[in-house]
Amino acid sequence: MSTDLPGRLPDAFTTPGSSSFLDFLHGHAPELLPSHRATGATGSAAGTDPRGASLAPHATTIVACTIGADAAGGVVMAGDRRATMGSMIAHREIEKVFPADEFSAVGIAGTAGIAVELVRLFQLELEHYEKIEGALLSLDGKANRLSTMIRQNLGLALQGLAVVPLFCGFDLDQGRGRIFSYDVTGGRYEERDHHSVGSGSVFARGALKKLWRPGLRRDEVVRVAVEALYDAADDDSATGGPDTVRRIWPVVCVVDGAGYVRVPDAELGPVVDEIVAERHAAAGGADGGARS
């Protein structure tokens, strides 16, 4: 069926039309797609086999919150550094927050191996479009592409290898930061103000509700995000708190009109030390002992 001549680039490469790397992979090399991996599990009996959940390392809590009034200052996204395998800590320095492109970031919770590959493919998808079209995708366009990729992973998700990302970015048309959450079926939901995903998200979300206020400055929002992760780690064994012994801090990034910037460890160290000192003074809560 192929009319390819030996030596020259195959027809798939020169077919005009698609600006999507994902579509190109589907046509030319589907075996490279994460969703096409043969897992050895077939049929409906294996369809709900949860073993994958305890065999593969899992990444956990991600938080995101907006900066400034009406999110005009952009968004902050932060993720802890722990990956777990059942009740074991698989890795204590894993990074789960990545730049998707210059004006967006993606954080991942769920099966680490698949999630990291998915992020790599997503980054490439956005860059590929940008190179071929000579223009950036809209933020909604990027969010929808991610949605498609999550949907393609549904088969693996049902075998216990789910990936649930959190996506945020600066919408250059509207001039504000926006946050999108997803479910395993690829459902895409825009979140207001702040959101959290992963095993510790329940606790992180509670903390965000109390700590976050509209109109916070960038450094205040960074602190809120780190503190929410601290609360998540306090109650969720799969979420790692700031490691003051090894000096390993969460990955925190800021996405605003100037683009994606990762907050350096030199800035995070004092923030973590301050939070830990305040908690030390008031072991039960977050108000720094103000009520005592």
Partner: peptide, 17 residues
């Protein structure tokens, strides 16, 4: 233009695999 798109696909596929 056709060759350029082919080149981007070639490079991205190689970098991905």
């Amino acid at each position: 233009e056709n060759l350029r798109v082919a080149g981007v696909r070639y490079a991205d596929l190689r970098g991905y695999s």
